[in-house]
Amino acid sequence: MAGDMQSARGTSRLYQGKGPWLLLPAWAVIGIFLLLPVCLIVVYSFLTKEFHGGVIPEPSLAAYDQFFFDRGIFGDDPPRIEWNYIEIYLLSFLQAGLATLFCLVIGLPSAWYIATRPIRLRQMLILVITVPYWVNLLIRTISLKFLIRDEGPMNAFLQWTGLLDHPLHLVNTSYAVQLGLFYSYLPFMVLPIFASAERFDIALSEASADLYSTKWQTFRLITLPTIWPGVVAGSILVFVPSLGAFLAPNLLGGAKTYMIGSLIDEQFKGAAGNWPFGAAAATILMSVVLVVLILNARSQIKLKGAG
């Protein structure tokens, strides 16, 4: 399979045998300064909780029990399946998925538009997209909230134009959370797509256009496949951070429903102080996403092998 790969899709064996060496710096830095600490956290999830944070080094499955089983508020009812946390996870995945979709809908055409401008303009436009993100996320989110308030500028404008006769209620709804996530992560979608859309052999699509395909046919059949790696990369960069986001849900959504980010946050820096449970919740999240990522990488490699 993977061993028979040809040079399709930019993979090649030009540096055959050097792979591990080239990966070494990234492996080393992430391995030492993240993987080791994270392993510690995974171990913590199997230990006994210490009151007010910290762990006691005695093995325990209490954290996972708490995640999957409901034993009532006093902890002595017969165990039932605990749906709370599973629901929080599903809801977070749904929110992140929708955010990714919206970023794609706006981000892909924007990236394509930028990539097809003349070179100087292109450089400037890509900066135009990133410069707003020099302002702190908290400040931007506060400002966004101000804009979409019931009596805020957006509603005033919509009512002035006569499009609406009563304010659109967004603040403290999941629509506001969506908007916040979209706004937080948009360039994470635009930049990778731009990177792969900025093609040096645009002649290919021009040839297709010359052959009287419609613009959309060309876009779908020629362009989309070439920018696909960028779409995948952008989707990962929007989806995964959205899962753990806490500013948008808290500030714009009113924090009435836990998302994964605030649930885990609360265990380490909230009154609960339940490190093993926070660690278990994080371990479950990481395992799910990691499996998806690795499967994705494998299927890509297989695809290339077949091609």
């Binding site: 508020i73 629901e87 009154a271």
Partner: peptide, 17 residues
């Protein structure tokens, strides 16, 4: 106390779910 705090955590989690 730890016993009560555990129940408090549950009540809070119920409230925020």
């Amino acid at each position: 106390s730890e016993e009560v705090q555990v129940v408090y955590d549950k009540i809070w989690a119920n409230l925020k779910k």
